[in-house]
Design a protein around this nucleic acid. Sequence first.
DNA 1: GAAATTATTTAGATTTGTCTAACTTTTATT
DNA 2: AATAAAAGTTAGACAAATCTAAATAATTTC
Lengths: 219, 219
Amino acid sequence: MNLSVAEENYIKSIYKLEEGQESVTTTGLAYELDTKPASVTDMAKKLRDKKLIDYEKYQGISLTADGKKAALHIIRRHRLWECFLVDKLSFSWEEVHEIAEELEHIRSEKLINRLSDFLGNPTIDPHGDPIPDAQGRLGKQRTQISLDQARTKRLEVTAVSDKSNALLEFLTAKGIRLGTHLEVIERYEFDNSIEIKIRNQPAFTISEQVSKNIMVRPV
Amino acid sequence: MNLSVAEENYIKSIYKLEEGQESVTTTGLAYELDTKPASVTDMAKKLRDKKLIDYEKYQGISLTADGKKAALHIIRRHRLWECFLVDKLSFSWEEVHEIAEELEHIRSEKLINRLSDFLGNPTIDPHGDPIPDAQGRLGKQRTQISLDQARTKRLEVTAVSDKSNALLEFLTAKGIRLGTHLEVIERYEFDNSIEIKIRNQPAFTISEQVSKNIMVRPV
DNA sequence: GAAATTATTTAGATTTGTCTAACTTTTATT
DNA sequence: AATAAAAGTTAGACAAATCTAAATAATTTC
């Protein structure tokens, strides 16, 4: 299956929205791709014809098995290039996303598999997200700090799911990066904000919007 | 100046044809780009409007100073990626061209300059062609075996100017690669073919078409 | 459950890069 | 120099991906 850059971006965004539980709507996808709902409808028909998504008008969109496979291959390419940029070219965590966004569309199985070897076949990218293997198989997911039912106190940051510059810059400013150990001081039910503390720095509060995007594991 | 992939390919091909002395015609460029003369005429108008080429109808095409600069930047990207593929990902000489053809269109000054640093700022690519520096300055050219006025006997291959698979495979089959030392046995005026010998293997003859694309230096 | 609001789709237009077919200009031939 | 051939251009069409504006369906609200 040979996909255009536009088609690949749609598949990737649909995967991302599906991952975040909620159903994929025309408007939601348009927002995610910074385009208009009318354009999404057009592309939905095309992707349905290619059997990459299930789509009935007014009924929303979901990836087929083939679509999921395609998505995982695109994500593999994206995350491997991010590793390359950070590990080999000394880019910082925050600046790699945009460039990887372009590199991910270069389609050569051989290139990607050799790149993976060259990088030592990493299984997580610089943001802590798992890298699918050559067959599209994915390692296990981490937990969102806000969904942690066990109300764990001591946590380690393993990933950030939203890659917007705004969030990444905020986290950097706060000293939160991959591997950072943090302590949950308080969880406020009324707005789902969370008060946290890093080492011996003063505590501060993060909104649900932010905490939803921080993946953690108990430590 | 932000160029589309198509525009970049035109600029690169025009540069290549200009480098090979002859004037750049609509048909010649169409052949080089595997497209139709009508398409070339359309694009020529667009590139003229962007002041990258001089073009008057029926009068052929030539790069402006800006166009040359753009071409050298594209070539820099292409050749650096070729270095990466061969040096770091163990691709062979012959297979890198196509992939570099895609990678060259990723436009991030920072990416390319860091890639260059990572590779040790190479000045020639795996085919022996010089890599323009960040300012677009180019090292000195090598000589075509067929233009060697001095009629040198012992030569070293420093580059191959035509990157078509057909030629690269032919050269590999004959045992001609970068750095190969060869001895010119005879030059035939009537068809400009050249009889050469590599080490102690039997001599063979190469046509002008082939020899024109082999760059050499005396040894 | 009717009306209002929101979401989605359709129809028609636009841009980029390409094409074919017809036409024009230039170059080559005699 | 006239004509034939080759090279180049124009006009009109098309596919991909997008858009706006209008129409339709679904959902929410009262």
